[in-house]
């Protein structure tokens, strides 16, 4: 198959950024820095992979950042609560992980069910649940911070900081998620259905595809991945507050769009999303390493990249039509 411009464009931008980074600061290519960039990308990255499916099916989820904060909160509460009974061991931590992942699936189901069964616009539903999850975690933390027991935190720490050699667990899990996501989008019936629904849901319905079920599944998949991201995020700080995961939803959506997935649905590019996430993290990293531009302008540069990515995609479009 021919590599198409939608995936190639972001990839070229990514390579250009890597070269730029290496020229500006030799420390950029040091393993420690690369590990750092990749590990920071991992949370948004996993969420963005799930978001790719939701957007490709013609949906949207604004609640993922709040959902991550909420899941981190209830996971910490669950672990602290299980501590007296089970003790300071992996059993307790697995309970916390289970709560985050099952909670994520349930939260995704809630979003998906409101969208497919109650037939409310995805934007409205997830704007609502975004507020609800954010408010719930603030309430659970009583306006402050929910902290994991110190002993558990020490035990749990290696899940974020440890790994195989310098490749830490979040990077490994992100890579596996991305590969699985790409495979599902390209080679599974589910992926084909998702693209068909986003392309024209009436055609999908007239092709005996259970449109609502597939849509619901995209939200549950996203919830699951938010849960997974949370499992890897909690050991980083060992706490959650009303400020956890703020704006993650927008970063995830931005990564999906930069990667060449159409916001209106129908065309999903999981590899593109991965590239998009890396582009966003690299810009941040390069601005921090080089004194060329103030890091405070990070958001502005990312904004330009997002708009540029969409403009470039559109130009390709019109060229097609001629």
């Amino acid at each position: 198959m021919k590599p198409d411009l939608h995936t190639l464009g972001p990839l070229i931008a990514l390579i250009a950024l890597v070269i730029l980074g290496a020229l500006l600061n030799p420390a950029f290519l040091a393993p420690a820095n690369i590990t750092n960039v990749l590990a920071r990308s991992a949370f948004i990255g996993m969420i963005a992979v799930g978001m790719t499916f939701v957007i490709t099916a013609g949906g949207l989820d604004l609640s993922v950042g709040s959902m991550a904060a909420f899941l981190a909160g209830i996971a910490i509460i669950a672990m602290n609560a299980a501590l007296p009974g089970l003790g300071e061991n992996w059993g307790t931590i697995i309970i916390g992980m289970g709560v985050a992942i099952l909670g994520g699936i349930a939260a995704g189901y809630l979003n998906g069910a409101l969208i497919t069964k109650a037939r409310i616009e995805p934007f409205i539903v997830t704007l609502g649940t975004m507020g609800i999850f954010r408010s719930l975690v603030t309430w659970l933390a009583d306006g402050g911070t929910l902290s994991l027991d110190y002993g558990l935190r020490t035990l749990y720490r290696p899940v974020y900081y440890g790994g195989i050699g310098w490749i830490t667990w979040p990077i490994i899990v992100f890579a596996l998620t991305a590969m699985a996501g790409e495979w599902m989008m390209r080679h599974s019936r589910f992926g084909r259905h998702v693209e068909a629904i986003g392309s024209n849901d009436r055609v999908a319905r007239y092709s005996a595809i259970d449109v609502n079920r597939a849509r619901l599944l995209t939200y549950m998949l996203l919830g699951l991945l938010v849960g997974l991201a949370t499992v890897l995020y909690v050991p980083r700080l060992g706490s959650a507050s009303g400020g956890t995961g703020v704006l993650w939803e927008l970063e995830a959506i931005a990564a999906v769009i930069i990667g060449g997935t159409a916001l209106k649905g129908g065309r999903g590019r999981v590899w593109g999303t991965v590239v998009g996430v890396l582009i966003l993290s690299l810009i941040d990293n390069i601005l921090n390493l080089a004194d060329l531009v103030s890091p405070y302008l990070n958001g502005a540069i990312q904004g330009i990249i997002i708009v540029l990515a969409v403009v470039l995609q559109r130009e390709k479009r019109t060229a097609d039509e001629r």
Binding site: R192, A204, S207
Partner: peptide, 22 residues
Amino acid sequence: DRKEAGLLLDKGLRENLTLASL
């Protein structure tokens, strides 16, 4: 309604052909 319910106009021939019998 070929254009709105029958075929995915922005997808390839293969994807369209097999959509109902994947």
